[in-house]
Design a binder for these strands. Structure first.
Lengths: 246, 246
DNA sequence: CGATGCCTTGAGACTGTTCAAATTAGGTGG
DNA sequence: CCACCTAATTTGAACAGTCTCAAGGCATCG
């Protein structure tokens, strides 16, 4: 099975066989596993390692002193939980697992090896970081200017697209390890309201969600509701075309 | 006068005289001016240049199809309006000026010169990008989990800190080119509500705002209201200490 | 078969919105 | 310097979306 990070990078650039091998070797060196709902990196700690998700979902979050929580992003297979790329001194947020997680662990020197080994790999990392910032910006737009229904629709479509690009979607459905409380904390609403919004999306037959699996029955409908414009995902498919005849 | 970008980078690392000279030369090569309220980069356009703000304020924003606007970040002197660092294909948001803006314009090759010329400069750029992502995340937290008053307080303190670090604050006050509509679109609230929140902060003597100048009279008070934790700004001051005895 | 966590429901309260209009400030040309 | 024009700020009142609090139901798991 191809490492989902390679799949994702393939959306953007075509790596040589050599580069792929090198990357695979480094990514395969140290594999870590986490149970669901574990803290993977703690706010305030010095980031000394970096995880690349192989399987399972994780999330970035912050707590306000009075206990309110905001989930800032979801990390899916293929995503780097950047650890501030080992440049910043302290973690300003925490990262936790939502489901059982398998991840490649990289050290500072691994990162250097990658960056110095190939300018194209370096650029791929750069690209990945920029895309995740772009996703973060769209998240700000959602929470700032979309109402609850639009936000939820937007999130679902975003997740579908991102999971598709790493082969983790089955048609228009995928594993969905979030509780309604997680969902609420990501969307900036209450659990109660998340529940009602969800029900409304169910009753209009846009989705079903059962046994931790989300099925989207009307992708176009959700996109319309959310005013979804996929540009922010920067999913050009040039790389992907090549990888077919490999 | 020192370029505010150098000031900002000095918070993080100490550059050699040589590196500073090189950077200054490149930054001084092409200076562009913008009137207030101009579009500096348009969503959907291919980003082929990059601006480093010398003076004035700019902002990133997106419009939803129905006209709602969300401001995603403010760009202050010393900030890169990254142009997606020339790696992404298309701008996924627009950038506009809020006040008269002076900026250094960099081309793709200038960026290469910088990155290849000195690993420390490359790392400084890297650092800057990570910090601005971190600010973006905190923005998501604000909009998601703080109420209007807390958000506004948070924004004001953030701006004070950032402006201080580039020498653009006078005590606890600074130029503030935003209209209440801008403020509202940044905070994810209505203009009407922004007005009322502002008045409340005025009546409690936390701030005054007149003739486009914001004075904060009770920084600690605002921080308390906002539950402001400066960690997300990553303003270590190591570099700064040195630069005194230069 | 309790225990625990998650999901669901109801009703009332509140924050922030909408719409509409009045007031003020700033800039321009005569 | 005044008259005018436009953009920005301020105000009021009704309304909507979301929250709070509280309780009940339904799984899953040891």
């Amino acid at each position: 099975m191809t490492h989902p990070f390679l799949l994702k990078v393939a959306c953007y650039t075509r790596l040589s066989g050599l580069e792929q091998d090198q990357l695979c070797r480094i990514l395969g060196e140290r594999i870590r596993m986490f149970d669901p709902r574990q803290e993977m990196m703690r706010e305030g700690a010095p980031p000394d390692r970096l995880f690349v998700l192989l399987d399972g979902w994780a999330y970035r979050y912050k707590h306000l002193p009075d206990g309110r929580r905001q989930i800032m992003s979801f990390l899916l297979p293929g995503d780097l939980c950047d650890s501030h790329m080992l440049v910043l001194e302290l973690m300003d947020h925490s990262v936790g697992s939502l489901s059982p997680v398998t991840a490649s662990e990289l050290r500072r020197e691994d990162l250097l090896t990658i960056v110095e080994g190939s300018p194209r790999l370096a650029k791929a990392l750069w690209w990945d970081a920029l895309v995740s910032t772009s996703i973060q910006r769209e998240w700000t737009v959602s929470v700032g200017r979309r109402d609850a229904m639009e936000r939820m629709a937007h999130l679902f479509v975003e997740l579908l697209f991102r999971l598709r690009s790493v082969g983790r979607a089955l048609g228009d459905s995928f594993e969905f390890p979030l509780t309604q409380t997680d969902l609420a904390d990501a969307l900036g609403i209450t659990t109660v309201h998340a529940n009602r919004t969800l029900q409304s999306l169910r009753s209009t037959e846009h989705i079903t969600l059962e046994r931790r699996r989300l099925s989207i029955h009307d992708v176009e409908g959700l996109k319309r509701i959310a005013m979804f414009d996929s540009r922010f995902l920067h999913l050009q498919m040039e790389g992907r075309q090549y990888s077919a005849n490999e």
